[in-house]
Amino acid sequence: MNKTVQQILLSLTVSSMFLTACNSRTNEGNTSSEESLAIHQSSKQGVTADESNSGDSQDSTLDNEGADAMGDIRIKLTFNNEEVIVNMDDNQTSKDFLSLLPLTLTFEDYAGTEKISYPSNKLSTEGAPSGIDPTAGDFTYYAPWGNLAIYYNDFRYSDGLIKLGKIESGVEKFQDINSDFTVTIEKVD
């Protein structure tokens, strides 16, 4: 009898894993391109399509907490004969990002709200909040995709978004860039 129970449990476990994987693939495969874009944008913003209208948001953001410890650490973004200075926040993700500098990355526009780029290394999310409500000038990391995001317009709460720092001034310099552009990122002495 013991062997029969073990076989049943094993069969249930394998079936459960198979159905979960199939359901995930089915959901991805059954969306139209318009739905895919909406889901893609919602997931980028950390909100599923079903949750986007629910009004539920978590308020576990890390805006200026801990900014004092690293408040004097700044980075410089150089692009298109322009320079922008970012004051870095004190969190593990920011520290991990700083360890990669200097970097030269290509940024592109995303949804008329932010400029994004994909560094080759994923950053640590240890101790990170579940998400933030980004505002213009926020320099962030979107953990689910592994990309950096520079917000030049305000946006809604986004799960998985981690604030790395805040642009001191000049965020408007990003608004009129309509094509991909190269940014050199380095620490300011």
Rank of each mutant, 00 (worst) to 15 (best):
M88K: 01
N64T: 06
I162Q: 07
E114I: 01
K163D: 09
G160S: 11
D109T: 05
F97K: 00
D89M: 10
G137K: 06
N81L: 05
A136D: 09
E168W: 09
T135S: 15
K115V: 07
N91R: 01
D138I: 01
T78D: 14
A149P: 02
E126D: 15
M88E: 04
D133C: 08
V84Q: 02
E172R: 04
K122S: 12
N91Q: 05
I167T: 12
K95R: 12
D63H: 13
A67D: 15
F139H: 02
E65Q: 15
G146H: 11
P134N: 08
N81V: 02
K76P: 00
I162L: 10
L164Y: 12
E83S: 03
F155M: 04
Y110Q: 00
I116E: 11
V171C: 09
D133Y: 12
G160V: 01
D159E: 12
F107H: 03
W145H: 04
T93I: 06
A67G: 14
K163P: 07
E126R: 06
G131Y: 12
E65R: 12
G131P: 07
V171D: 13
P134E: 09
L161F: 09
P102H: 06
L62W: 14
P129E: 13
N87I: 08
L123I: 04
F107K: 01
Y110G: 00
G71C: 04
M88N: 02
E126F: 11
A149K: 02
F107P: 05
K122Y: 14
L98Y: 10
